[in-house]
Amino acid sequence: MTKLRLAVIGLGHMGKHMIHRWIPQFAGQVELAALCDNEEDRLHREAEAAGGSPKLYTDYRTMLEEVQLDLVYIAVPPSMHYDVARIAFQKGIHVFCEKPLANNLEEAKHLMELGEQSGRLHAIHFSFPLDPEVLKLKELIDEQAVGPIKSMNLYLEFPQWPRAWQHNPWITTRHEGGYLLEVGIHWIHMIQQVFGPITQVMSEIEYPTDGRQCESRVRAIMRLHNNIDIHVSGTDHRVGEERVSLVVHGEKGTVALENWSNLYMGATEAEMSPVPPAEEEGRLPIFKQVLRILNGEPGQIYDFCDGYNAQVVLEALRKPGEGFTDIRAQLLQAAYK
């Protein structure tokens, strides 16, 4: 089997995860051909730790011009996604991009169009809907284990933002940071996959006095296509440990996905017991699915159409209007599986 030639652009948390964990798992299928990061010390340090002999660059434009590639993994800040992916598509390179798809809705729409026109794979790194706990949650919802859904609560609550392991120059900025963008986007996409389209959004956002900083408090309602409301509570001043959770209230009980991977169900929110996750062959990491598809095998990914649909909701949350904003005209129904 001829190995796929991969470049990784951006060596923050996710870029390092790719080169130190995922690539070694699939060493028989992929070759790390090039690395790019704007911090030269980090570039050389991580390249040495990864081993092999990738070409090293501090400018992704030069790298994409000079290196023969099959696939690029984009793990740079959101404001750079558009330019990197655009050039990659022009070069005929498959693209695997971190979330969110872009830094605004216009860029996301154009990237989706470029991806569709390119004839190349365009995958966004959404994996949450394929987690065993989420698969079990979907099974419970489909079986109406708690009866018809009445309402939901989404908690994005942090004692501080950023979290201790996240410090970088952009993650606290209003331009391309904040917990709505970094964390909320995962839950938006998962909700779209499990419960169907979010069609209306109403939000109130409080910001620090420093106009450059991201949101501090969020109160919002995301209304589903079937008029079920998801009440969103976000803060960076939570007392105690962070809570990133979805609680689903049904007519016969409650099911909750607490802190990403702990599933509970009970007659009331106060009387819930743990629920074992789904038992099936793991489909994660998404990188495995990307490689399967590029090797001509069946695989499941979320593409730039999914990324665009999630961005529609994200931008409606981040830019409040008067009352509910109806986003149905912007959504791509074809992206819902």
Rank of each mutant, 00 (worst) to 15 (best):
A7E: 07
I9E: 02
G15A: 01
K16Y: 00
H20V: 00
W22A: 01
I23R: 12
P24R: 10
Q25A: 12
F26V: 11
F26R: 04
A27I: 14
L35M: 09
R42N: 04
R45E: 05
E46L: 06
E46V: 09
E48C: 07
A50G: 04
T58C: 12
V67D: 00
L71E: 04
Y73S: 12
S79N: 07
A85T: 03
R86C: 03
H94P: 13
V95A: 11
F96E: 05
F96T: 03
K109D: 00
E113C: 06
L114V: 06
G115P: 12
E116W: 05
E116K: 15
G119S: 07
R120F: 00
S127A: 07
K136Y: 00
L140K: 01
D142I: 12
A145C: 07
Y155F: 15
F158V: 02
P162W: 06
A164K: 10
T173V: 14
R174Y: 11
L180C: 07
E182C: 15
I185M: 12
I185F: 03
I188G: 01
Q192Y: 06
V194H: 09
F195A: 04
T199V: 14
S203K: 02
E204R: 13
L224F: 15
H225S: 15
H225V: 14
I228S: 13
D229V: 08
D229F: 07
H231G: 10
V232G: 02
S233W: 12
H237S: 05
R238T: 03
E241T: 03
E242P: 14
R243L: 13
V244A: 02
H249L: 13
G250L: 02
W260F: 12
S261H: 11
L263R: 01
A267G: 09
E269M: 11
E269G: 14
M272Y: 03
L284E: 10
P285Y: 10
V290F: 05
L291T: 09
L294C: 10
L294M: 14
N295S: 09
N295R: 08
E297H: 09
G299S: 00
F304S: 02
F304R: 00
G307E: 04
V312G: 01
E315G: 05
R318F: 06
K319A: 12
L331P: 02
Q333V: 03
A334G: 04
A335M: 04
